[in-house]
Amino acid sequence: MASVSQAQTEPTAPTEHTPTRTESILMRFGTVGELLMLVSAGGRWWMLPLVLALVVLGFGLVALQSVEYIAPFIYMVF
C-alpha cells in the first residue's frame, strides 16, 4: 500500500494556547532579533549581512509554505 502519499497533518495535542497569525509572525521576528544579537555579541559582526540575507530568504520560504498549493506557479514566475 503506497502510503507514501500521506501528508503530515497538524497534531491534535491538548492546547492551552493557539497562536494567532500576528503572534506567529511576531515570534519569528523575535527569533530573528535573538539571532542578530547572538551573532553580534559573539563578535562575528561580519556574518550579519549573510544572516540577514538568509533570514529574508527564510521568510520567503515560510511564506511559500503557506501557499504550497500554488507554490510551483510562483516558482515559475521567479
Binding site: L57, L61, E68, P72, Y75
Partner: peptide, 22 residues
C-alpha cells in the same frame, strides 16, 4: 497530496538553487 508532494519537491529544488546562488 500528490500535487503537494510535487509542490514541495519543486520548492526544495528551487530553494536549493537560490541558496546555492547565495
Amino acid at each position: 497530496e500528490g500535487w503537494l508532494r510535487f509542490s514541495r519537491d519543486v520548492g526544495h529544488v528551487m530553494s536549493s538553487v537560490w541558496l546555492f546562488l547565495l
